[in-house]
Design a protein around this nucleic acid. Structure first.
Lengths: 107, 107
DNA sequence: TATTTGCGAAACCGAAAAGTTGCATATATA
DNA sequence: TATATATGCAACTTTTCGGTTTCGCAAATA
């Protein structure tokens, strides 16, 4: 199926689920209450999120609690890093321009 | 069409394009050379990237140079922020545990 | 034990995505 | 001016996606 984390967070409902279970584990039924879809649809999303290890399960009787695998989120952060370098560089360049400008005006 | 940046970066080819034009502007033909698809397919991806303002165009004669709109990338960073708080929190908690442990062992 | 509840999986459906081929158009170049 | 080149766009096809409905199974409960 070739799931990756970028595809996982592409869907707005899945981002909603991720946000929901970020702070506390929840069952599929409880999660589904927050969206305008069926529990089965949520279950499908949870499967995708589980497949790419963005979410972990905890069995408790017949209930399954889902929670966010926060470590996996760092993968996006890591990917962003290359671009962060670029925008910080540009900021520094702007900073230099500004400081040069300041020196000139205070002279 | 409801394009958003998360959908835009979901496709691996588009992430490739983004990486490619991050540092220097390129024409569709030049970009297409780097992927195993037709120029038209790349053109379609560029259209999607342009639609969600992740990429900007610069016309130069009959050529069009595409480059990354780095500011837009910050949107992902902003979204990540809520989760960054969580993982930093956990790290701090671990840090406290470790320093407590250290105090005890050095006593 | 019989029934309800929580869940995943499979089958199906319509819409969207990603790719290809075939254009049309504008700009270089011979 | 005739031709080659760079590009976008439209039509079409195949695949994927997100959703619903239906089902089966295991655990709780009456």
């Amino acid at each position: 199926m070739r799931r990756d984390i970028f595809q996982a967070i592409a869907d707005p409902t899945r981002r909603g689920i991720v946000a929901l279970i970020a702070l506390q584990a929840m069952t599929p039924n409880a999660i589904a209450e927050n969206f305008n879809t069926t529990r089965q649809a949520v279950s499908k999303h949870l499967r995708i999120l589980t497949e790419c290890e963005l979410v972990k399960q905890e069995y408790q009787g017949r209930e399954i609690y889902y929670s966010l695998e926060i470590e996996k989120m760092k993968e996006i952060d890591k990917w962003l890093d290359q671009y962060r370098k670029i925008w910080e560089n540009r900021f520094n360049q702007l900073d230099q321009v500004l400081s040069t400008l300041k020196k000139q005006t205070t002279k």
